[in-house]
């Protein structure tokens, strides 16, 4: 390690420049910097990329070719058309676990402490993390759509409903990110964070209309499965993508998402402020 000239660097000090009036610009810039970092982490760590993309593809293949033949769909729509919109919703939920684990890891490693001692926008750590999730979910949407079409998925609802369905799903996923961020901030370490998400995502994804029609479930379970937000979102996304009636599920899903955001974002923000 060379110790010469360290102190007398040729680079002028510019970091102490006046920040007046541009705090919103810096907040956006900081959020994008953190988002970029989290995206790079997803791409660099093979397990997280597998988690993000390979796993949903496996689910598609598993349910399309192994379980699908035994599952009867209402209105006689092909199971693959029932399945793919469900997988999209499921993948965003599973993907949000990465947010909980990542934040818990950042805390454990002391990275959050370093961020706190920087003149960056307070909100950028959580904001950047959720923006990265959002971008990953767009990628998931594209990959699953392509894989789905390859295995016979025929979204007959038209382009605009497809876009609307995607937006509903992305909004729902975004609200979930904040909830999982909250878990990550509350967990003592990344392993616990992962364990804490399990009892939450399991009933939400499997006691839902993601993989199977809820009509075959016992009455007590049906009451939960029909009305919980994941099913409402899956129903809306599926209906819009395949041109089936959606009832009021789209509005119910959007209402859930907005309510969840209104509660979870401040909760996570407060947890972030108090975390050290």
């Amino acid at each position: 390690m060379s110790t010469d000239n360290l102190a007398t660097s040729k680079t002028p000090v510019t970091s102490l420049a006046d920040h007046g009036g541009s705090s919103i610009r810096w907040a956006i810039s900081d959020t994008l910097t953190i988002a970029q970092r989290n995206i790079l982490a997803i791409v660099r760590i093979p397990t997280s990329l597998v988690f993000a993309l390979l796993q949903p593809v496996m689910f598609v293949l598993l349910f399309r070719y192994v379980f699908g033949g035994a599952i009867h769909t209402p209105n006689g729509i092909p199971y693959v058309d029932f399945l793919i919109p469900g997988i999209l919703v499921q993948t965003t939920i599973f993907g949000a676990v990465g947010t909980a684990i990542g934040l818990a890891e950042d805390l454990q490693r002391g990275l959050i402490e370093r961020f706190r001692a920087l003149p960056m926008a307070r909100m950028a750590v959580l904001g950047g993390r959720t923006v990265a999730d959002f971008l990953r979910n767009i990628l998931v949407l594209i990959v699953i759509t392509v894989v789905g079409i390859a295995v016979g998925f025929r979204p007959s609802g038209g382009v605009l409903p497809y876009v609307a369905a995607s937006l509903i799903m992305l909004l729902f996923a975004y609200s979930l990110s904040w909830g999982f961020a909250y878990i990550g901030l509350k967990a003592p370490n990344s392993e616990t964070a992962q364990a804490m998400t399990f009892p939450l995502i399991f009933p939400l994804t499997f006691a839902s209309s993601i993989f199977v029609p809820v009509e075959t479930m016992p009455g007590w379970l049906q009451a939960f499965a029909k009305n919980q937000p994941v099913s409402q979102t899956a129903d809306a996304v599926r209906g819009l993508m395949t041109g089936q009636p959606i009832g009021n599920s789209a509005w119910v899903s959007i209402a859930w998402s907005i309510a969840a955001l209104a509660i979870l974002a401040p909760l996570a923000t407060r947890a972030y402020r108090r975390v050290i």
């Binding site: 510019t14 970091s15 420049a17 920040h19 810096w26 810039s29 900081d30 910097t33 953190i34 970029q36 970092r37 790079l40 982490a41 660099r44 760590i45 370093r114 961020f115 920087l118 003149p119 960056m120 950028a124």
Partner: peptide, 17 residues
């Protein structure tokens, strides 16, 4: 998960340089 250079660049950006 970042390289040495990316780490420093991130900190520099967050310092608003």
């Amino acid at each position: 998960s970042l390289t040495g250079f990316e780490n420093l660049r991130m900190i520099g950006k967050l310092n608003h340089m």
